[in-house]
């Protein structure tokens, strides 16, 4: 999947302080085009803080960052236009229908009505939701909502999509169907930046980073990390690192 090594996220010496508290302590990493990058860490390790900065929602205390080719200090708006975002907590408007949600988000990203209608049809067909087109999102099962939310997050064909614990609480079959969508997106060249507490999902990533107390303590492919820590699975890597 990593045929080219175009860098789409470049983070150098990223530090973020809140008063005396150092939430992100000199982070350095690169993410490549079309890569599935797992961003892992214990609760409170500093993942959300770093993700907000990379998405252009907050500024670092110091450090150099480019995201989708744009500078984090000068071109935050360009970054926002070139990324997609989905989290488990907030994704869709429950009192709009499936089609209305698609149209609303695509409109926000400035797509023309003609393109919106075409992509809405493609998306609904791909997900097999033809008979749910005019259903309120409120009455969709959670699994459908999450698949729809992901597809809408990439409706404007962003360079990068950020997924913040996208599969929490979902049944095991739906969780895997969701990863099919992630693989399809990566295969089309969209970079996927994902956080999760499911360690089997860490295995699906091309590379993962693991944060501990504000620092990146490990970075590599799942295979590399398992060899480095001399364990069988990513769960053991995680527990070894986070427990010290």
């Amino acid at each position: 999947m990593l045929n080219n090594r175009d860098i789409v996220i470049n983070v150098k010496n990223l530090t973020k302080k809140f008063g005396d508290f150092i939430a992100n302590d000199n982070l350095n990493f690169e993410v490549y085009k079309g890569e599935i990058f797992g961003f892992l860490g214990a609760n409170g390790a500093g993942k959300t803080t770093a993700m907000k900065i990379i998405c252009g929602l907050s500024l670092p205390t110091s450090g150099e960052l480019t995201v989708a080719g744009y500078n984090i200090y000068k071109q935050q708006d360009k970054i926002k236009a070139n990324i997609g975002y989905m989290s488990q907590k907030f994704s869709l408007y429950e009192d709009l229908t499936v089609f209305e949600n698609i149209r609303f988000y695509a409109g926000i990203y400035g797509l023309s009505l003609k393109i919106i209608l075409r992509r809405a049809d493609d998306l609904i067909k791909k997900l097999g939701m033809e008979n749910m087109r005019n259903t309120l999102v409120r009455s969709l099962p959670l699994g459908w909502r999450q698949k729809l939310a992901f597809s809408i997050a990439i409706i404007h064909k962003p360079q990068i999509v950020f997924l913040d614990e996208p599969t929490g609480g979902v049944d095991p079959i739906t969780r895997r169907q969701f990863w099919d969508l992630i693989y399809d997106a990566a295969n089309e060249g969209i970079t996927v930046f994902v956080t999760t507490h499911y360690m089997d999902e860490a295995e699906y990533c091309d590379r993962v980073s693991i944060m501990v107390e504000g620092r990146i303590e490990a970075l590599g492919s799942p295979q590399e990390l398992k060899s480095q820590f001399d364990v069988q699975d990513m769960n053991s890597v995680f527990i070894k690192l986070a427990r010290g």
């Binding site: 929490g168 995680f238 986070a242």
Partner: peptide, 10 residues
């Protein structure tokens, strides 16, 4: 343990 990391879950 929902939303809790792997170490705290353990």
């Amino acid at each position: 343990t929902t939303g809790v990391d792997a170490v705290s879950r353990k």
